[in-house]
């Protein structure tokens, strides 16, 4: 079975072809954060038309790279939600129209389910069950994954996402976007002892996160401690230590509570070296880091998730609704 997947839930336009026999045949991404530095405010072109303008050329490009004709497709998958209604509608209408025109099934995929299944695209794929830590600019979640459609949200951020906390801290320290690498690099020369940042929500049971207070703490401390280079580095280090400590504490707790021994770390923050060092040191835990292309928003994960459900016997839907708010917990295993 060969599935074309289309992702347009927020900033990125992603398209990919996944095949039962051949695996991921091609994937293309047009990132809007490439063209306007998100926190810098450079405006080379209007982003508003980008999904619409980019999607047809991207589909053509991905089919060409896959050496596949659209008539070779057996099904079409698109992100049905959650996300921005206007953005979702572009992918949904294009994929749905293609499905109707080609007389193939079309399936609306849950964006977060696709993120959770993305590690299965790797050769070294984890087997079920695993605990996934999704840490990106938009998400911070711990989820137990028992199989396709079998998810249990163990914890999530109650305010800012981890990547957002990095970006906003970078901004407060006068660093460039993206904030993660900039903060981590400045932190390398910082003193981990000078500033003791709070470890939000680690002192009570539960697996939820809260990072908004770290941002306020940085702003307050920066104001009173001054802005010389050494102080900024110490602040970056203090922030990073608190972030990493918090994430590791919650992961350790999630693995202990579920009795699961496999941990998947997905999302841009998963690239942080100090976080990896600490997670790799966890006892009796196998840690997987899917490559970053599959961690950020992309079409490959949508093609894969659509393929996983359709090949398990689920039939496509025939409507063309989008679901901007869609609870992951409402998903069920593929209905054969």
């Amino acid at each position: 079975m060969r599935v074309l997947g289309v992702e347009t839930s927020c900033d990125e336009t992603g398209v990919a072809v996944y095949d039962s026999e051949r695996g991921l045949m091609a994937h293309c991404l047009h990132s809007q954060s490439d063209t306007h530095a998100v926190y810098g405010g450079v405006v080379p072109e209007l982003a508003s038309r980008d999904h619409i303008r980019r999607i047809s050329p991207l589909i053509q490009e991905v089919l060409a790279r896959a050496g596949s004709d659209r008539h070779d497709l057996d099904a079409l998958a698109y992100t049905r939600g959650p996300g921005l209604a206007g953005a979702l509608l572009v992918g949904a209408s294009v994929a749905r129209s293609m499905a109707w025109a080609l007389q193939r099934p079309g399936l609306g995929v849950h964006h977060m389910e696709a993120h959770l299944l993305a590690p299965m695209l790797e050769e070294q794929a984890p087997s079920f069950p695993f605990v996934a830590l999704l840490v990106s600019g938009g998400h911070t979640m711990l989820v137990r994954v028992d199989g396709v459609g079998r998810y249990q949200v163990l914890g999530q951020s109650l305010d800012d996402a981890a990547g957002e906390a990095f970006d906003k801290t970078a901004k407060l320290l006068g660093l460039s976007y993206p904030g993660g690498p900039a903060v981590a690099s400045l932190a390398n020369t910082g003193d981990p002892q000078r500033f003791r940042f709070p470890r939000p929500m680690t002192d009570r049971p539960g697996l939820d996160f809260s990072f908004s207070g770290l941002k306020t703490f940085t702003a307050n401390t920066a104001q009173s401690a001054g802005e010389d280079e050494a102080t900024r580095a110490d602040l970056a280090r203090g922030f990073e230590e608190a972030m990493v400590d918090t994430l590791v504490t919650k992961c350790r707790r999630a693995l202990a509570e579920t009795g699961v021994s496999r941990l998947v770390v997905a999302g841009g923050v998963g690239a942080n070296a100090r976080l990896r060092e600490r997670l790799d040191a966890l006892d009796a835990t196998e840690v997987f880091y899917p490559r970053i292309d599959f961690c950020t928003d992309n079409g490959a994960m949508i093609a894969y998730a659509g393929h996983a459900r359709l090949s398990a016997g689920e039939s496509g839907d025939n409507d063309f609704n989008v679901t901007p708010r869609w609870d992951l917990a409402s998903l069920t295993a593929p209905a054969a």
């Binding site: 927020c10 999530q156 109650l158 305010d159 800012d160 996402a161």
Partner: peptide, 8 residues
């Protein structure tokens, strides 16, 4: 949950 809307 009332998350920050910065990314969404």
């Amino acid at each position: 949950v009332v998350p920050s809307p910065t990314y969404t």
